[in-house]
Structure formats: structure tokens, C-alpha cells
Amino acid sequence: MSTNIMLNNDIELPALGFGVFQTPPEETVTSVTEALRVGYRLIDTAASYFNERGVGEGIRRSGLDRSEIFIQTKLWISDFGYDEALHSFDKSAGKLGVEQIDLLLLHQPLTTAFDRTIGAYKALEKLLADGKVRAIGVSNFMPDVLDRLLAETGVVPAVNQVEVHPYFCQPDVQQADKEHGILTQAWSPMGGITSYRGDASRSTFNDPVIGEIAQTHGRTPAQVMLRWHLQEGRSAIPKSVNPERIAANFDVFGFELTADELARIDALDTGVRGGPEPAEVTLEAFHRDIPEA
């Protein structure tokens, strides 16, 4: 069983989760069922992944009690605004087949229409107060935008889910999160996003430093990267549809990296973001219709 992290509202979150970004709906069912069989208890999805229904079905097929599974999803910018976000919760909960969502995040800040971002977050605060969600948070919020949010809202986010992997560590974001008591949760935690760019030599999976550390411990580069996150106090949500990798990614609790090894991985940071610049995420460029439940 994975270790848990206590959030700032005293809710426990499994440190290691299972992600379904870009997983087709039909594969989502089988991969989620397999992840839960292996031992994952945190499942991360999003309205804009269009596979929440598959996540819900995978959870039902697992045979596990709902109370054993931590479900987190994210509201897309097209549903920002107070009333829109309240309705977006209904859409997500309906597709997931649950009454309560454990952690609900704003998927991106909408910096060009920040009043709608504030409205959506205030809707999250209302859902939290009403017990419809157990914790609320944000994703891809940079420190300046986080400050703007905190200045206009009452509940400090429990989590900020951002791109963090050995080639892009975002130390300023991690430090800002820490100062506010916000857990940093890593998406693309093994730098899978670095593999999409067509240059395999710049993939974290082929990095010689990570490879050498992996060899020392008799582990895979992926396992070393996930262990790095956990030892530095982050939550991480790796994704895979391959049963062997799903299992291997969860098998990261039986070894420990040294302080020197952690520092060597930290030093690989290139400062180059793989995902979109958060400030460039606009409704014009990124609008997606989120279907009803």
C-alpha cells in the first residue's frame, strides 16, 4: 500500500497515484481496474480527458469499496464561472458514478478572464462546505497567479498539480506551494512529455545519470524518478496502459535514494517546460465542450 500525505485540511491523499491522461475511454476501464488490483488507491482524471466514465466503470469493476479509493478530477476552463463550475461538478460526479469527489481541481488558470477563475474556485469552496468534495485545489498555477487567487478567496488550495520531472523541476512553484502549505503534485512525473518531442536522446528515460542510479539500485529509470518525487515530499501520478509498467511504477517503496542521488537528479533541471505555458491557455485557443453526464 502506498504511503499517504496529509493535506492542509487533514485529509489523507495517497502519495502515488494513477493517471489516465490521453488514455482512450475503453482502455481507461481496464487500466484503472488493473491499477487498483496492483495496489494504487488514488486515481487522477479530468473533465477534458473525456474518460471520467471509464474511470468510474474501472472503479466499479475493481470490487473495492468506494471508501478505499481516492478520486480526483479537474474542471476545464470552458466550465469556469461560479454557476458553470457547480454544474461541472454534477457532470463529473455523474460520469464517475459517485456522490462525492475526494479532490477537485481547477485544471488551468484562465488568466485572461480571471474573474471566471475566481468564480470557479468559489464554487469549489461551496462544494467543499457542502461536503460534495473532500478537498479542493488547482493545477498549473504559477506563484503570481496563486497569489492573485489567494487574495480573492478564502480556502487555501490543498494541492497544486504541475509539470515536475527531472528535466523541469519548477523550484519557484514548489517553494511557493510549500510556503502556503500546498502539496505539489507532479504530472508527467517521469518526464514522459520529454519523449513526445521526437528526440529520444533528450528523454529522461535515456538520461545517463538516472540510468546509472537505476543500475546501482537494480531498478528502472522510471522507478528511480518516482522514488525521487516521493522522497522529496511530492505526490506523483504516473500513467500507463501496460500492465507490467503499471505494476513496476507502483513498486517503488522497497528502496531509498541517497541525498547525493537526489541532488544529482535535481541538477538535471533544464528549465524547459514541456506542456503549454499556463499564461497562454485561453478560451479562444483551448475551448472544449464538456458533455453532460
Rank of each mutant, 00 (worst) to 15 (best):
K122Q: 14
S139A: 06
T258M: 03
L150D: 04
G58K: 04
N9Q: 09
Y49H: 02
L262Q: 09
V159F: 00
A293E: 12
F205T: 14
L42I: 07
E212V: 01
E232D: 14
D83E: 13
E27R: 14
Q223C: 12
V155M: 10
L13A: 11
P291D: 05
A259R: 15
A186M: 07
F286A: 04
G233T: 07
Q174L: 15
L13K: 08
Q170E: 07
T220L: 04
L150C: 15
A285D: 14
P143T: 02
E277N: 15
A135W: 00
Y49W: 05
I237P: 03
L105V: 01
L42K: 12
L86E: 11
C169E: 11
T194R: 06
R273N: 13
E261K: 01
R134H: 09
A120M: 02
T184K: 02
L257V: 01
I193R: 06
E125S: 06
I101Q: 01
S78N: 13
A248R: 04
Q174H: 06
R288F: 09
T204A: 14
T112D: 15
L226D: 04
D115A: 15
I136W: 02
P109H: 14
A151R: 12
P189F: 06
L262D: 07
D44A: 05
I290E: 00
V98N: 06
V133T: 08
Q108W: 15
D172K: 15
T111S: 08
G97M: 05
G97V: 03
D269C: 04
R245C: 09
H87A: 14
S31Q: 11
R134Q: 05
R245H: 14
T3H: 14
D172A: 15
L7V: 08
L146H: 11
P238I: 15
H229C: 04
H87P: 05
L16Q: 04
Q72P: 04
V145R: 03
K239V: 09
D83V: 13
R273V: 10
I69R: 05
P109E: 10
G154N: 14
T111K: 10
D266N: 14
D260M: 09
